[in-house]
Amino acid sequence: MIQLSGIKKTFNGGKSNEFKALRGIDLEVALNEVSVFIGPSGSGKTTLLSILGCMSRPTSGRIWLSGREITSLPERFAAETRRETFGFIFQNYNLIKGISVLENTMLPAYPTGMKYRVIRDRAVSLLEKLGIMSKSEEPVEHLSGGEQQRVAIARALINTPSIIIADEPTAHLDTELAQGLLDIFAGFRKEGKTILIASHDALVFESPVADRLISMRDGKIV
């Protein structure tokens, strides 16, 4: 269970351009489910996911993950939690250009101190599973959008996280590729992973893969 209590996030607090992205979120999210955060742009979906994934701290409020409070962790432990518990699939994939598909996939595992060979084998098996092993030595910028998406998924899975956070994962995909991605998410759910998706794509929130829809508007759950 992920529990959120009174989560607020204010950017540029006290300044003329102050912006309240989250205005007090109280929420409980079940594990081993696909939860989809829906709402228009600026509703706070991405901000909430980044706080959930230990990427940023809320201005106030707390989050418990399976009973463990994760909002006040020191930077080192927050990074460790981010690395070991969460796998991120970003809207623009955020792959590192100029290096190969394989290296991009392996990157999140580098700070873990795992043996290089183990990381490599794991990356190869993920790329095989996602059907892009043939491109493993190519620089990522040579890949199509759908292929880059799959590299981003492989990268998100390299540390075998229990929770996958996907921000607008279908934003740059056509219907066929988007459907393929949802099938992959369905597979993750079967494996017992928790999936948190932010999306305003009907294909995602109308899909049977979504167990729960959470609507957001103006930084609140509605």
Binding site: M55, A79, N159
Partner: peptide
């Protein structure tokens, strides 16, 4: 700068 952001995002900490 973006790359450093990505590395941090995927689980690297400042010291890494």
């Amino acid at each position: 700068k973006t790359e450093i952001g990505i590395l941090k995002g995927i689980g690297w900490d400042t010291s890494d």
